[in-house]
Computed example of a mutant assay.
Amino acid sequence: MSEKTLSAVEAELYDRQIRLWGIESQEKLRASNVLLINCRGLGCEIAKNILLSGINSLTILDDCIVSEEEQTRNFFLSVDSIGKKLAEAVLPKAQALNPLVKLTADTQNPSEKDVEFYKSFTIIITTAIKTDLVLKIDKICRSNNVKLISGDVFGMFGFCVADFLKHDYYEDRVQMLGKKRSHDGSEKTTVQVQGQIDYPELNKVLIFPNTKQSVDAIKKSKRRNELFFLMLVLLEFRNENSRNPEISSKLEDMQKLKIIKSSIVDLYKVSENVFDDSLFEQIFGEVVPVSAILGGVIAQEVIKAVSHKEITINNIFLLDPLTFNGKEECVGA
């Protein structure tokens, strides 16, 4: 990826963030082409943040038709959007956020896209799709040096999983020049520290019953956060039912979740009490404030991954549905 020199208009528009992360990082963002799969409640929050960051282009891939329910939780939509193709309906308000970004709508089903389509992006963001498609896209990404991050919101619970390949980064750290301190800070200096994170492919991270992958590496590692297993249960629910748990079928879906939980804990050889079943009460619907929180986190990781500035998550972020604390897990490495 070759950086594009910022124009005078861009330098003025992005002045505040250039002061934050530097001209070099902004030029990397300016050269990046981003694919967002699904622009629903979580997706619109991600789109808002990365549009404002100053990327080169954003392609929104979504085959959804806008429903009345979707319209109420997506600030890019209006009542007039109901019945229209979502990817096209969000364009006017999304483009207004940053006219300098090339914005494209694609209404085809993501599963119908070929390898050539996916390999043309700098980074791909997926939301609200089944795990087998995420793993398929991740395989394409790894073969073509494309970064990937996948996230979802289930009620009060949110998470994202990243595969940023072999990712180089740098961060600025303040160091003291001597033992004595001065009031004007003259004995401090900022140095640039470089590092690298080698991300595992997602089929070594997201492992479910009835698959051929081994969970040995995960079982041998440190004790996993309980929310990691909650994430797996919810993803497997979608894999089996082609939908998220719904409040209209809550009792039935709660039983399905408990059955899936038993198969997950059996696969990973952990206690049935790895998390309390009462957590299932927290995962129905798509809560807008939770989408806003997770959308900010994912957009931040996209910016860091593209600009190579600051340390990215390694490799799972979990938003606790009870305390709303963010927790990072390194899985599969």
Rank of each mutant, 00 (worst) to 15 (best):
L148P: 00
T126I: 06
T189W: 11
F157G: 05
N144L: 14
F284T: 06
I50Q: 04
C330Q: 15
A333H: 08
C330H: 12
E12P: 00
V215S: 07
L61A: 03
F275P: 09
K84H: 13
K212W: 03
D168N: 12
T131G: 05
Q213I: 00
T72D: 08
L234V: 06
K261W: 10
M176A: 10
S249V: 03
V287I: 15
D138T: 07
T5G: 01
F275D: 06
V288G: 05
E201M: 06
A47N: 05
E12H: 14
D266C: 09
E301W: 03
D172S: 13
S186E: 11
F280N: 12
I18H: 01
E116M: 15
L103D: 07
G54W: 01
E69M: 07
G332D: 05
M231V: 07
N314G: 07
G151A: 12
S120D: 08
P110A: 13
A105T: 01
S25I: 02
L86H: 08
V101N: 00
I303K: 06
S25Y: 12
E236D: 05
L42W: 07
I316Y: 02
S25F: 09
S32P: 03
R142W: 06
F228P: 05
L51H: 02
L20H: 03
V146I: 09
S214F: 06
E286F: 09
K28L: 14
D62N: 05
L177H: 10
I313F: 04
T312F: 12
F121H: 10
Y169S: 13
D184Y: 10
K220N: 13
V79C: 06
D163M: 07
D276E: 15
C141R: 11
Q108H: 15
A333Y: 10
D253A: 04
Q213P: 00
G22F: 06
A96G: 08
F228G: 01
D216K: 15
